[in-house]
């Protein structure tokens, strides 16, 4: 017996795992793209692009199902152990989480037609930067999965705090805007939901990162350290409200 560290004696097992990895990369790429497109549709009030995001969500849903089916089949046929088992369980969970990320992007796209006064909604200017970071977290968490990179997974977990901070700023700015401009309350509420969607996308990226960390190391990811001053606690309460 010579440990090879790479290939299984049963080659079909390796090809199943490779196929799963490919599909996870694809569902990740599509979700990331959905976020970018929905934000572009929002910025340009592009209803055609928004409709495209909604339609393409079907592809993400299909991919999730294909990943789940193949994971089921692989677990049933190969009875995986150790890191193989951890990876397949992580794959199964990641596909569900990434599908949710796609749903949040679709939800943003669905709100595009409802925001007609974008130029008058001041806080909207923060959204592109927020979405860029949320999107990066999704990409990095999936890169971490592809590379079995526990350090990058930790990094994603740490950077989610930036998305949370953005949400808290936008929350305050939107409330202020609503108080000052009661006629905008409807559209501002949609804006707030969009910010919340992006915040949830960041949370889901950290969920992916936690699974990657577990798959790579066999240990649960250490808790993110949080400050204990009153402002931080308020931030926590705001960002946790929909958890």
């Amino acid at each position: 017996m010579s440990p090879t560290g790479t290939e299984h004696t049963v080659k079909a097992f390796d090809s199943d795992i490779n196929e799963l990895r490919g599909m996870v990369a694809e569902i990740g790429g599509r979700s990331e793209q959905a976020i970018a497109k929905s934000m572009r549709a929002l910025e340009n009030h592009d209803l055609v692009l928004a409709a495209e995001v909604v339609a393409e969500d079907k592809l993400i849903d299909d991919l999730e199902k294909r990943i789940d089916d193949l994971t089921f089949q692989t677990i049933a046929l190969r009875a995986p152990m150790a890191d193989d088992l951890r990876e397949l369980i992580a794959t199964f969970k990641i596909s569900g989480v990434v599908e949710r990320i796609g749903d949040y992007a679709k939800n943003i796209a669905k709100r595009v037609p409802l925001i007609t006064q974008a130029h008058s909604l001041g806080p909207i200017s923060l959204l592109p930067s927020m979405s860029k970071i949320a999107s990066e977290l999704v990409r990095d968490s999936l890169d971490a999965f592809a590379r079995r990179d526990a350090d990058l997974a930790m990094e994603v977990n740490r950077r989610d705090q930036i998305v949370d901070d953005f949400y808290n700023s936008i929350f305050r700015a939107v409330i202020t805007h609503m108080i000052e401009n009661p006629k905008d309350i409807g559209e501002a509420a949609h804006l707030l939901f969009i910010a919340k969607n992006l915040e949830r996308i960041g949370d889901h990226a950290t969920n992916v990162a936690e699974m990657v960390y577990f798959a790579a190391t066999g240990e649960p990811m250490p808790e993110r350290s949080r400050g204990d001053n009153p402002t931080d606690l308020l931030d926590d309460a705001l960002s946790d409200e929909a958890d």
Partner: peptide, 19 residues
Amino acid sequence: IFTNPTETQTRDYITGRYG
């Protein structure tokens, strides 16, 4: 042992990678 073995040799054996 079966979810997170310490030794590489154990891991290679239980995951079906020796040979």
